[in-house]
Nucleic acid binder design. Structure first.
Lengths: 240, 240
DNA sequence: CTGTCCTAGTTCGTATACAATCTTCGTGCC
DNA sequence: GGCACGAAGATTGTATACGAACTAGGACAG
């Protein structure tokens, strides 16, 4: 029952008290969520977190609100925070949005890409193939983030980063065995090196579609304790 | 000295105490910002707002944080909140992002558009042409929001809504006389009715480029954050 | 045995208090 | 006269206290 110990593991050396411990706590939680160390549906009691990180509930609450606005955690009136478990329709929407945005963005990426960028992407791919499952998921997200960053548009990068994070949640809920993402990225690197736009865009769209197709929406793959999403659309206070 | 009266005008009937007054306060501030009743650079003291809306600083702070994450206000350490004044490079980035996203999104909009949608857009356009300047700006934003909503993708709608709001800020800082936006929208409606994708996309791109071209970035340097406001527009719009 | 109601415990929502920081304005020195 | 320094005021950052809501467990009636 004592969640504090669990969250202590996340805390690490967050001793940057007073200054901007917000950022450190945010990073710790973000990584834990993206790496599936905290599963969708898991509750995040405020004072367990505040005790684990050694800050007051005020600070924790601020970080939780930020995560809620990014749709990584869900805040419900008087019921606290828990890791968001996306509904199937939300999941499909995220993939649709990513196909659209990443496809369009590649047109901006291709003219700007440098050999150094390709090297960086290769390095991430390299680590992906070697990493444990958990880290592989984060690295896969990092691969896509690094890719869109080449377009050098903060607005678009930020919007897509949110979608990429949410994808990790979706895989946590509906993913089976292993997503095909990591192994495939090398193909994209080759296409990028070739430099033709249309094949790159086609590949990305197919890549995302493959991942989406590998999901299993029939069952709640993980221990998913909230049926609110599945059945009743009770009034939720979720910040749009 | 007393900002409270100024903010009281925004408060309206926000008497939904205890429940979700957050949303009401957020809406009031959002509208005031988008309609340029609060100009970029204007400070938002916490206790003036809390007094005006009749809630505690805690609540105000939560709303301000949300607006900050949407980049409508800027929070600085120990210096409080003020309306964001986008830099020229941020402004250009927003327009680039909008050209990309709205262009791509139109491909999703066109197959889904219904006569009812066209009627709704026409109604907004109608009000645009008749409205005062301030309301026209909000209605112009509403026109674009309503347009992207037709694609029926919450993720994309939300991402674009943020960009649209930020555009309003950009016009507040760099806009001259009047933006050509309102009058032109009728052209888009005609093109949408015709139903050919390519002309619609071309028009939208040109539309956004026209607005961007009508801005005047010479006033302030890119590198310096907000000196133009510290020196140039030093006054807060204290009416009385 | 099952379902409902009631009570106890836990967790969250809001407000307030106090400390730290920044800003402003006045004074003194160069 | 201008600049630097310092103190007072104002504003924010953090923590804590208290009230309200939800959850869980047990007792009692059907």
């Amino acid at each position: 029952m004592n969640d504090t110990r669990q969250f202590h593991l996340l805390a690490g050396q967050v001793s940057d008290r007073g200054a901007r411990s917000d950022e450190a706590i945010y990073q710790a939680l973000w990584e834990a969520i993206v790496e599936h160390r905290l599963s969708p549906g898991a509750r995040l009691p405020e004072d367990a977190l505040s005790h684990a990180f050694g800050v007051s509930r005020t600070t924790v609450r601020r970080v939780l609100q930020r995560l809620a606005l990014e749709q990584l955690v869900t805040l419900r009136q008087n019921r606290g925070a828990q890791i968001t478990s996306p509904t199937p329709s939300e999941a499909r929407d995220v993939f649709r949005a990513r196909r659209l945005m990443e496809g369009a963005l590649l047109a901006e990426v291709l003219p700007r890409i440098t050999p150094a960028d390709l090297k960086a992407l290769e390095a991430i791919h390299e680590r992906e193939t070697r990493a444990e499952r958990e880290h592989a998921i984060r690295l896969s997200a990092e691969f896509h983030s690094r890719l869109v960053a080449i377009a050098d548009s903060p607005s678009l990068s930020e919007a897509l980063s949110q979608l990429i994070s949410r994808t990790s949640l979706i895989i946590a809920v509906y993913g089976r065995a292993r997503a095909g993402c990591p192994c495939e990225h090398i193909e994209l690197i080759e296409l990028l090196r070739a430099g033709a736009l249309a094949p790159v865009q086609r590949w990305m769209s197919a890549h995302l579609t493959r991942i989406e197709a590998s999901l299993d929406f029939t069952a709640s793959g993980d221990a998913l304790p909230d049926f609110e999403h599945l059945f009743g659309h009770h009034r939720e206070q979720s910040a749009s």
